[in-house]
Amino acid sequence: MEKIPILKMGQFLLVTIQVDLYDRLALNLESDLVQMVSTTEARGVLIDISAVSIVDSFMGRIIGNIASMSKIMDAVTVVVGMQPAVAITLIELGLPLSGVHTALNVEKGMELLKNKILVNGEVPDYDDDEQYDNLDGTE
């Protein structure tokens, strides 16, 4: 069965959606992701939707669900790379995704996640030092 791959990067989970999701795939992603947050004790979830051309109310609800579910498991969700046409359409549709954090691209999303987690009063320790070298520099 088709699956959307979820990558673990230190304390974050990274999901890149490359295809237009049909419902089953999206529902699987929701449950897989929540499962992964639990098993890896991830502190942040980054969903890259830069390749997604259509987000309807169903997809929007999935994204909102993932954010709310992660939140009660103490993880922050950031959606990155939404296309302009998708953003305009979502607003017209009446779905401003108010509970979800957004960022322009993966890089800025990572930065936002780090800041959010730092604000929560903890300095995350990373498995991969090299990747997060600039962390000290930003503060």
């Binding site: 419902d23 051309s53 309807d56 046409a85 305009i88 359409t89 017209e92 549709l93």
Partner: peptide
């Protein structure tokens, strides 16, 4: 145009659902 395309397809998607 891309924006109107996206609006049309999203509306269609809602109705098909």
């Amino acid at each position: 145009g891309l924006v109107n395309q996206t609006k049309l397809i999203t509306a269609a998607s809602e109705l098909v659902r």
